[in-house]
């Protein structure tokens, strides 16, 4: 399980690197969405391993609401682009 967590954090570093490097806003948005999903998954894994309901609930809420928020942001950006 510790190995799995290390691997997940390592995979989490990749989109963060993309966010730091790219200048195009759409690439950045996609990478940020990826970060959001991955962080939520890390939270879920930690909560399940520690048998903790509260952290897991926060993870599920981040998983659904975070994606919805980035969706709204994408729509907003499209409106600004026009």
């Amino acid at each position: 399980m510790t190995l799995l967590l290390f691997g997940m954090v390592l995979a989490l570093l990749l989109p963060i690197l993309v966010v730091c490097r790219r200048t195009d806003v759409w690439h950045r948005l996609a990478a940020l969405a990826s970060v959001s999903t991955k962080v939520a998954m890390v939270m879920l894994v930690v909560s399940v391993v520690r048998d903790d309901w509260m952290v897991g609930l926060v993870g599920v809420i981040v998983l659904s609401v975070g994606n919805g928020a980035v969706m709204l942001l994408a729509n907003l950006l499209r409106g600004v682009d026009r």
Binding site: W26, T37, V48, G59, V60, L63, S64, G68, A74
Partner: peptide, 24 residues
């Protein structure tokens, strides 16, 4: 909890990819 996470993950992430593609 895990079932709810699975459901919301699959639905939202898929639709999210669609929204990003359309908006870009």
């Amino acid at each position: 909890l895990l079932l709810l996470a699975l459901l919301s993950l699959v639905v939202w992430n898929t639709i999210f990819g669609y929204v990003l593609a359309v908006c870009s």
